[in-house]
């Protein structure tokens, strides 16, 4: 019935796929945060036209499927002079997609800081940047940590979609394996369990970070 011996011959390609998945995941998350932090700030505190632009970015990228965004970037990109290989196109697509969610999260985190605290800091003669650095950002970071861990998990799962535009990550390698061996159930079952373990590990790491962050907020308050 279920035969797992097919994995023994295929481990080099599986390992390279796994490593690429992790690389894409980390790069995607980093790009998403690099987009989300400044845009989230603009969405919370920017001028009206800026806010409208950022809002349009967030709505578009959250309202359309990642797969379609990747098709636009990778297949339609060359028609307007953006020619990317599959891997960079995938990472940029993942980053833009995750960045829209990060923007929303950072904005909500900033809005959750009681305005009285900012007023008080200003009254004590803190400059704007001091208020931001010592009052707003530390609290905001603790607030946004749980939803950001969630986004990191979503980005991890969405790396599998990059296999459709031929990025040779883990799912792509396993699909190749199924086509070589004509065994479909075992590889996909093992792959599911693999992703599941990775997601649960990330979630438990995230929970530990949240506990530490919450403790930091208590001791510094």
């Amino acid at each position: 019935m279920i035969d797992f011996s097919i994995f023994t011959d295929a481990w080099p390609s599986l390992l390279s796929g796994f490593l690429l998945t992790v690389e894409i995941w980390l790069a995607g998350c980093a790009l998403a945060m690099a987009i989300g932090a400044p845009l989230g700030f603009l969405l919370a505190a920017g001028r009206r036209p800026t806010k409208a632009l950022v809002r349009a970015y967030v709505e578009f990228f959250r309202g359309t499927p990642l797969l379609v965004q990747l098709f636009v970037l990778y297949y339609a990109g060359p028609s307007i002079g953006i020619t990317l290989d599959a891997l960079p196109a995938g990472i940029i697509g993942l980053g833009l997609y995750g960045g829209a969610y990060c923007t929303e999260i950072v904005c909500a985190g900033l809005e959750a800081i009681p305005p009285g605290q900012i007023g008080a800091a200003r009254a004590f003669g803190y400059s704007r940047s001091q208020t931001l650095r010592h009052i707003v950002v530390p609290q905001m970071l603790v607030l946004v940590l749980p939803p950001l861990v969630n986004i990191a998990i979503f980005v991890l799962k969405d790396t599998a979609i990059l296999s459709i535009i031929t990025v040779p990550e883990l799912t792509f390698q396993v699909t190749g394996l199924t086509l070589d061996t004509f065994a479909f159930v075992e590889p996909y079952l093992a792959l599911s369990v693999g992703y599941w373990v990775l997601v649960e590990l990330t979630a438990s790491l995230g929970r530990r970070a949240e506990i530490r962050a919450a403790r930091y907020l208590e001791t510094s308050a």
């Binding site: 979609i161 799912t171 159930v185 996909y188 792959l191 599911s192 992703y195 997601v199 649960e200």
Partner: peptide
């Protein structure tokens, strides 16, 4: 809840697509 939130949907679709006839 943990398993079906932990597996990428694409992988789940492929698994079910091949598992059902199996």
């Amino acid at each position: 809840v943990s398993f079906f939130r932990g597996v990428p949907l694409l992988v789940l679709l492929l698994l079910i697509y091949y598992l059902l006839p199996f």
